[in-house]
Structures are given as C-alpha cells and as structure tokens.
Design a protein around this nucleic acid. Structure first.
Length: 270
DNA sequence: CACGGATCCTGATGGC
DNA sequence: TGCCATCAGGATCCGT
C-alpha cells in the first residue's frame, strides 16, 4: 500500500512522540516477510532516539542498533498511549514509556528487522541497492537522465524498481508519468534530456504534494495517529480507467505492466 | 547481469 | 445468498 508519501506521513505522525521513549516490551504476532529479523528480548530496555526514512523503510534509531520497518502492501502503524485491544492483523507491538507502537498488516508483506548498525550486513541487504531520495538535493536532473540511459526497460518499471530513484510505487508512477506527459511504455533509455527534466520535476512535485495531503488512502491507510490521507482525490489517472482524462477528455486507458495495473492518457502522454 | 513471471497473504468486489 | 475469479499500495526469488 504505502509508497514514499504514506511512509513519510506515517513517520511525521509519530517521530516526535516516540523520540526518547524507553522500550518496555516487544511482541511479534504471525510471521511477517522476514520472521527471523527481530530478537524481541534484546529490544527491551533500549531507547528509541529518532525515526528516519529511507525509501519505503522506516528506521527506528535505538541507543544500540536500529529497527527497520517496511509496510509492504497493506501495513500501517499506530502509535498511541491508550491502545485498543489487539486485532487479528496486529503482528508487531512495541510498548514504550511514551506509548505503544503497533504494526497492522493484513497481507503480511511487511517486515520488521533488527540490525546492529545501518552499515551492517543485515541492514545493507535491504538498503544497499536503493536509489536516490527524490525529495533530497541529491536527486538531480542530469544524473537522473544519465541513469535512465543505462536502463533498457520501460520507464514505469524503472521507476517502480527503485534502483534509480526510491519511493515511487504504482500510484505515483502513474501520476508522475501523466504529469510529465510520458507514456509508461516508453523505454527509459529513449528519454531525451528535456523530458527527463520534466519527469524529474514531476516526481518531486507529486511526491511532495502527496506528503502534504497526508498520502493516499485507497482502502485502509492511515498515519500513526489514525488519520486518513486525501491525495487519492487528486489522482489524474490512477484508478480512473475508462473515465475521461481531466485535461483532454480522452478515456483513461488501463494496461498491465509486470503484473501491475498502469493507467495513462494516450493523448496527453507520448 | 538483465529480464519476465511466479510468489508470499488476506480481503474486497463483481459476475453468474 | 453462495461460489469463484480477479485484483490490490511491494519486493524477492527463480529460470532463461
């Protein structure tokens, strides 16, 4: 479910509230994607110092080591001082001196992994091949264009893979390509420099706007305070198959690319 | 190495 | 109403 904006919105909704908290207990429910990742007993007594984000991962910095949390397709976090009873899909819980953090994930594609340090093998296996952060200064148009030249696959797949730039999932890949006027089926290495510049700007614009709107809530996403997002209401193409393009009126087309749905306007996107 | 496809899991939805 | 097929925000793994 969650792409970069949803993960960032989640982070912003509890980072300052959990900072400085002491972990009182930790508990795992049904196995997640990497079930061996958490030595639960080692977490007790640790202090949560900060919450960072890298791509779609949340990084909880502890006084010793860090916890990597991925929300997969259906995961969401909740941080509250008075947590309700555990529900069937709560699969990880951290009780701290400042509140209880819970991961709810029906499909269990998410993950919670403990790593001794960010540069440890455990952490680098997950973070090592991630591309540049799109909202950072390190994301630069000329480098982006050069990177695209090296990939001989369709542009949408390159965005989704996250090796060039992180955080763009299925919704935002569709939206970003629409805003840039680029066909999702165009090969990445065929993009001219001016078009790469447009795409670069579109990625930054759409993701920043989505964070601002609290992310997209398609079904059940909410931030750690339980608030839903609103960006889905601004979607130009995602989920709008056979509806008129907001710009030209042509019916939005839906195709399959690598087992995922792609939505685009065949007039506005070339 | 690069690529396409299957795969993990549960729930919602739509057709018959 | 029930049953079955399809689809869903992600990312890894496996065969070619």
């Amino acid at each position: 479910m969650p792409e970069l904006p949803e993960v960032e919105v989640t982070r912003l909704s509890f980072a300052s509230r959990i900072a400085g908290a002491r972990i009182l207990s930790a508990q795992l429910g049904k196995p997640l994607r990497w079930p061996l990742g958490v030595p639960v007993m080692q977490l007790v007594g640790r202090e949560v110092q900060a919450v960072r984000r890298r791509g779609k991962y949340l990084l909880l910095d502890l006084d010793e080591g860090l916890l990597l949390i991925h929300l997969g397709m259906s995961g969401s976090l909740r941080f509250s001082s008075q947590p309700p009873a555990l529900s069937v899909h709560d699969h990880f819980e951290l009780v701290t001196s400042q509140g209880t953090l819970r991961l709810n994930d029906p499909r269990r594609f998410g993950a919670v992994v403990f790593a001794p340090a960010e540069d440890s093998a455990v952490a680098q296996k997950l973070l090592g091949k991630l591309g540049v952060e799109p909202l950072s200064d390190a994301f630069e148009a000329r480098t982006f264009h050069a990177e695209l030249k090296r990939h001989h696959v369709v542009i949408k797949q390159v965005l989704l893979a996250g090796h060039v730039v992180v955080g763009v999932g299925n919704i935002y890949a569709c939206e970003v390509l629409f805003l840039a006027g680029i066909r999702p089926t165009l090969r990445a290495d065929r993009l001219s420099f001016p078009r790469a510049v447009k795409l670069h700007a579109a990625i930054r614009h759409v993701l920043a706007r989505a964070v601002d709107r609290g992310g997209s809530t398609l079904r059940d996403f909410s931030n750690a305070s339980g608030e839903a997002g609103h960006f889905q209401l601004e979607a130009m193409v995602y989920g709008r198959a056979d509806q008129p393009c907001q710009i030209c009126g042509t019916l939005v087309k839906s195709i399959r690319q690598g087992q995922r749905s792609t939505f685009f306007c065949r007039v506005c996107q070339r």
